[in-house]
Amino acid sequence: MNTRTPALLITGALLAATTACGAQSLDAAGNDAEQPAAEVVLDEAPAEEKAAGVINAITPDKELAAKVPASVKSGGLKVVSSIGYPPMELWASDGKTAIGFDPALARAIARKLGVKYTLTDEEFNSQIPGVLTGRYDFVISSMTDNAERQAKITFVDYVKAGSGMLVKKGNAAGIAGPADLCGKTVSVVDNGSSLELAEKYDAECASGGKQALNILKFPGDTEAMLQVINGRAQATVTDYVVAAYKAADPKVEVEAIALEGTESPWGIGMKPDNTALIDSVKGALDSLIKSGEYGKLLAAWNLDKLAVQSAVVNGGK
């Protein structure tokens, strides 16, 4: 769904190691009373992260931390995402630190579970295979929770969002909704929910006796959007929160159009048999929701409308 660059490891724990305020003392499982408590240096969010103050104030929930899988306790929470999909995922000004709502929530979950955190930027189509092979503990990448993906991974749903379109400023093509895409060229991210929607609209055009869509597929959202800017495509289908974020930038010169009735949950994806981790992530998200910290993370990125009331497992259809 985003621009793909070579995998880049962002180790938030290294940032935290330079400051004492990131250290939290947790009792190590199975320790004798005479043994010292394990010192875990938690991830500190960078200054450019809009929710940094909220994240850095989160302290571990000892009950949840005690149930975290041993591999995560020892190796930290290994997260995969795709950077370049603002406001959900983007690079800070240093070009190597991930910020945005998805990295913010991943950091918050790690802190709630009392573990370190690393995030790898990976091409969208490689994320689920990376989770299934154990390279990553979970994927958080604006990924729609649907039945097809549930056949491979298990989701803990963390927001609910709809789709939208981007058209060039002025909308010379006169696109107001899906029916106006018939006979037009539309750019999408390959293998994402935007492709599914474009194919759905193409079928509707065919059934109505209208011209088909010319669908251009790209590995990342930025490439798909560029086709609209350079005039190769009349529209690109994406998530509405991303479309609105990009349309708010006067330098981009695009307009956002909401696609009504497309709301669906986005999930944190994990290996189905890793039930201990699924329970830990669900517990951490529920704790963040109950404490109000989750709402503050959303508000920091102006995403209040995406809020869910509880952490649901595989809520997508």
Rank of each mutant, 00 (worst) to 15 (best):
K246Q: 15
T133L: 11
T222W: 11
Y117S: 11
A276R: 08
P36K: 00
D286W: 06
R149V: 14
S193Y: 02
A243G: 13
A284N: 07
G261H: 12
V139K: 12
G231F: 08
I55L: 09
A51H: 03
Q234R: 12
V189D: 04
W91E: 04
S141D: 13
K96F: 03
T262P: 06
A233K: 00
G177V: 05
N31T: 13
A248S: 14
A176I: 00
K168N: 12
L113M: 13
A235R: 03
K317S: 14
N314K: 10
I278Y: 04
S163F: 00
A98S: 09
A23R: 13
M1G: 02
A179M: 11
G114C: 09
V252G: 03
T238C: 05
N302C: 01
G267I: 10
S126W: 04
S81L: 11
A247S: 15
K210W: 01
S81D: 08
S291R: 07
K78P: 11
I229L: 15
N2K: 07
N125Y: 02
G130W: 08
L42D: 00
K296W: 02
S207T: 10
A206S: 09
K246D: 14
L64G: 05
P36I: 03
E122K: 14
D221F: 15
Q35W: 05
A29F: 15
D221C: 11
S93A: 14
F218C: 01
G269N: 11
A37N: 11
A248G: 14
A45S: 08
T236E: 04
A28D: 02
Q150H: 11
A147V: 15
A307G: 03
S71A: 14
T118C: 06
E89T: 05
K73F: 09
V139F: 12
T185V: 03
E199M: 07
R111L: 07
K50G: 11
R149W: 11
K160A: 14
D221E: 14
D137S: 08
L119Q: 05
N146E: 13
L297R: 01
S74E: 15
S291Y: 08
T11P: 00
L181D: 05
D279F: 00
L195A: 09
P265N: 15
A233L: 03
Y158C: 05
K160M: 14
G269K: 05
A92K: 02
G295E: 08
A151S: 07
M165W: 04
A92G: 06
L42E: 03
K169I: 11
L77E: 05
A256W: 03
N274Y: 09
V167P: 00
T120A: 12
A173N: 03
M225E: 11
S291I: 10
L132F: 13
P60E: 06
S74N: 11
L259W: 03
A57K: 10
D180G: 03
S207D: 13
A299S: 03
E34L: 08
L90M: 12
A203H: 05
P87N: 08
E122P: 00
A235P: 04
A37R: 15
A17C: 02
G315A: 04
N31M: 10
A47L: 12
V189Q: 03
D94E: 07
G162L: 04
E148Q: 14
A233W: 05
E34R: 06
K67T: 05
A16G: 15
L226H: 04
P86G: 13
